[in-house]
Design a binder for these strands. Structure first.
Lengths: 252, 252
DNA sequence: CGACCTTTTGAACGTATTCAACCGATGTGG
DNA sequence: CCACATCGGTTGAATACGTTCAAAAGGTCG
């Protein structure tokens, strides 16, 4: 209960009526992708309001009833799967344009925690209205299906990573994936800040934080990347890509 | 192209008009779950036809264009994710009532292979008709969403398994999951046949086949299970469950 | 019956983990 | 403003777990 702060100020986005999907720069990454401009105003009505989250705050927790899906407007979040015995694992890192909350449709309550890794802004989309409107707008329906399917395919990739890759390959895949997602959003593909700790990266990749640190150092020594604190620069994307794609050991 | 056999004989189910969703014993596990009986006949029209697959045959391959989703009527199948460099990993085992093919909605083509582990019968559901009908039948729409969400949640579980569990825990989780799925379908929760090889289990769990064999032997020695060939009996489900849920080493 | 595939088991090896110490950056209170 | 506590990160050495390589047994299917 202590985690939902700042609701009054951000409801209805503080009176900025133009802050809707139709004028959102992320609309082609997000739910409205492919929607006819004339129908866009109906989409606008979907977004209940925006909410701001500070670093460490929860968007939702496992067990919470399904109410809405959430689109990240700005900032980075992580999803954490919890096991009965208290074990927890990062299941994904999410950035602007990503749609969250689909884990709750199955059982009517959320199955993971979502935590802000930095200050975030999130659009809330009541799920029942989304289902209703997607019955009336086939392109919206299809886009929702595509997004859920994309999540399934993404998970397959993570399973492959966790099940058959060595530490170096996992980290290379992770960095290249981050790089590509930044590029898709108009940021540099080679220079960016890691919003998560080594421990969170390790949890996501099924490795310990020390291993992450060691492999990053090795990549640095090999001239693939530069790391200073949280800042990362990919200096040799080609060789980083080649760390993947090599079942045999990757020696000179 | 050599993998699609027996299409003429099984089209329209060989003239058995009663073999439709409304009279299918799996309807509460499958897409029609929760549909009003009066609307069931509209669901019946969704199932294009049934197809039979023999052991080793492909339901579809990665790259094939999205045409239909598929519901398993009988038999067991596996999904395999392939990596560019030829690596491959089993992403899941599927049995009757499971819905397959949702990996293709995102990009319009399938992202994994589906292979029959034994003789199977599969209902084909043209995806465009499914989208169309789910616009008209809200319960169908919701059930489709639930099934896709369930797949996402299942994947989270696999990620947790691959990312934070030891070999014994992974195998215990696998066996208990199989057991529960058999029970849900009205079969014995303690006696069943493994339709997959040790290698396929290993691929799914991120382990080598030798490790699977060793852990099965250890479970057997400890009196948790009995294994003869492909037949498996869970003799102490409680202790098997306790193999999970213990972050510290599971001695005494 | 013979060829092949799957499974089991053993021994040596390798990768990632664990434990531990240390460093640097950040933030707090005196 | 500095001292101090804390948190995140790096690095080293010993350990453990699962893999790899190898051989042989058991089943299955032609």
């Amino acid at each position: 209960m202590e985690n939902y702060h700042d609701p009054p100020a951000s409801s209805l986005d503080g009176g900025h009526p133009h802050v809707v999907c139709s004028s959102c720069s992320l609309r082609e990454l997000c739910l409205p992708a492919g929607i006819d401009p004339r129908e866009m105003e109906r989409i606008d009505s979907l977004v209940n309001h925006r909410r701001k989250f500070r670093r460490g705050e929860h968007l939702y927790r496992a067990g919470a009833p399904l109410a809405s899906l959430y689109a990240i407007r700005s900032g980075t979040m992580k999803s954490c799967v919890l096991y009965e015995d208290g074990r927890e694992q990062v299941a994904g890192f999410h950035m602007m344009g990503d749609l969250l909350g689909m884990d709750a449709i199955s059982a009517g309550r959320h199955m993971c925690d979502i935590v802000a890794l930095e200050d975030c802004e999130v659009c809330e989309i009541p799920f029942s209205r989304l289902e209703q409107l997607s019955r009336e707008l086939p392109p919206l329906q299809h886009q929702l299906h595509r997004i859920m399917s994309r999540e399934i395919v993404r998970d397959y990739g993570v399973m492959l990573l966790l099940g058959s890759m060595k530490a170096e390959e996992r980290l290379a895949a992770f960095l290249l994936n981050l790089s590509q997602r930044f590029a898709t959003r108009g940021y540099s593909a080679t220079d960016f800040n890691l919003r998560m700790t080594r421990e969170e990266i390790g949890s996501y990749l099924g490795l310990k934080l020390e291993t992450i640190s060691r492999v990053l150092s090795r990549f640095h020594q090999d001239g693939l990347i530069e790391v200073h604190h949280k800042h990362l620069r990919i200096t040799d994307a080609g060789r980083l890509r080649r760390v993947l794609g090599q079942t045999p050991t990757a020696d000179a």
